[in-house]
Write a protein that binds this DNA or RNA. Structure first.
Lengths: 219, 219
DNA sequence: TTTAATTGTTAGGTGAGTCTAACAATGTAG
DNA sequence: CTACATTGTTAGACTCACCTAACAATTAAA
């Protein structure tokens, strides 16, 4: 089984590949807060173990084996987050750090039981998809709120790069997954958007916020 | 915070001290399946960190700091076991290995929430006491079933050195914590005992089993 | 296209935790 | 009281994951 460290590298590779496509040594180095030579060394090791295709000066590419292993770590992370929220009463802004640790537990039965107890969810508390037990990830059909034009009616289905501060911000504005937004105006100067939230109240958010909100067009 | 490894050494020290009093390098070496030189080196390191009093060729002694740290690891372990049984539906024979891993999670809120959800228990699913958040351990008033004489009426309150195989054995004989036993006969040859179980049925157990069953005299 | 910035690599070292081989101290039996 | 067995210690080496300093390759800018 992969070590705690290897699991973290795989998870980072997986996340970065989904965000930016090409992943370089420096990207990983930044994301994991580890020096570039360390990443370089680990890349060689992961290649040796068949998790990675690695050629000098070329971007890193997860192999099929690597993708599956990474997805299974992400699965453990997201199931844990779901369990923490649904069964243990934590807030969606509290679960990331705990799940970051619990995800390294090697006990399939533990995660299977979580899965069962929360009713085999397909997304985590932040709307991110939970890979299945075979490591397959379901793509979610969504777009950034910032890409929507005036008049669009959408509902919030997920977040990209959710951070504790973003979650706290959303909480403080009463925003949760599933809520609807009706785009009223887009400010050309800074891209900030004004929306009717839940058909009730106008709210204005900066471009920075709107880029993080993943939405689906309302039926 | 103490590393995963250090936590395991502390836990072992704690367990062995409760079982045999004096703990030597070899005891730890056996218990942790680690070579004696490794234990020797770790003993020096733990002494350095103030967890241990260590003098050459003398038995190892946990300091107050060491005892507290060890008790808090045991607390995490036993709370986890309780949570796994009470909230997640695992059997008492399945929880040890999972708890062995979960106990190393560094997230006090996680264990506090478990504690709350299972109703602030004082003993784990095997009847072992759960240290409180300050590291204090409640002594349980009990004796080995093997020390009871014919005619004693007792109830099962805990196990000493519970192993998967012991738990499976007890399960298969329908025995659980709280059950009553009325000692009917003790075989002088091999120490095996015949008891009336739950006032219903006579069962005979070997000395080896009876030494592991911790009981309290019935009121 | 030569320069500068970014990005990646090599070389060499550190600390934690482990091991084996060899030896020293302690304890137990005869 | 010597002899042997147990127990503990030292020395030296290994792996994993990390680091810094220095250098090389690639890419972007002037």
């Amino acid at each position: 089984m992969a070590s705690h460290t290897v699991e973290n590298y795989l998870k980072a590779l997986f996340a970065l590949a989904n965000e930016v496509g090409e992943v370089g040594i420096s990207d990983l180095s930044d994301h994991l807060a580890v020096s570039k030579p360390s990443v370089n060394g680990m890349a060689k090791a992961l290649q040796q173990d068949g998790f990675l295709k690695y050629e000098k000066y070329k971007p890193l590419k997860l192999t099929a084996k690597g993708k599956k292993a990474a997805a299974l770590v992400v699965r453990k992370h997201r199931l844990t987050e779901m369990f923490l929220v649904e069964q243990m009463g934590f807030g969606w802004d509290e679960v990331h750090d705990i799940a970051e640790q619990v995800e390294h537990v090697k006990a399939p039965a533990f995660f299977d039981r979580m899965d069962e107890l929360v009713g085999f969810p397909t997304v985590d508390p932040h709307g991110s998809p939970i890979p299945d037990a075979q490591g397959n990830v379901l793509e979610i059909d969504c777009m950034k709120l910032s890409e929507c034009s005036v008049g669009s009616k959408v509902s919030l289905v997920g977040l990209s790069q959710s951070s504790k501060s973003l979650l706290t911000f959303l909480d403080s504005h009463g925003i949760a997954l599933g809520h609807t937004f009706h785009v009223r105006a887009v400010e050309p100067f800074d891209g900030s958007m004004t929306m009717l939230h839940k058909g009730a109240q106008d709210q204005t958010f900066s471009l920075k916020v709107c880029e993080r909100l993943l939405v689906k067009r309302e039926a």
